[in-house]
């Protein structure tokens, strides 16, 4: 079994309204040293793929077809082998 950990975030070039709202709230709480914060989504998926390469290919395909909207989002993932 393989475990994929997937992070979806706004592309850096695009205004992230959620991140901006959270940053403003943190500033109101007096965390003045927070200069930037990005909001995103985190997914974990377990895969029964035969190899790590196959698990990575599947994960990439999942991100591209559903989890991320590539017009405005970008994704990063790691895949590790786990006990069945």
């Amino acid at each position: 079994m393989y475990l994929a950990k997937i992070h979806i975030t706004h592309k850096a070039s695009i205004l992230d309204p959620q991140g901006e709202a959270i940053k403003n709230a943190l500033h109101r709480l007096d965390y003045q040293d927070v200069s930037n914060i990005t909001a995103g989504k985190y997914f974990e998926t377990t895969l029964t793929s035969d190899s790590k390469e196959q698990a990575e290919a599947t994960t990439r395909s999942i991100c591209e077809s559903l989890l991320a909207n590539q017009n405005m989002e970008t994704f990063l993932f790691t895949v590790e082998k786990v006990e069945d």
């Binding site: 706004h10 695009i14 205004l15 309204p17 959620q18 901006e20 709202a21 909207n69 017009n71 405005m72």
Partner: peptide, 11 residues
Amino acid sequence: LPGALQHNKSM
């Protein structure tokens, strides 16, 4: 259609 709709700037 091209592009995407994201959160309103004001949230």
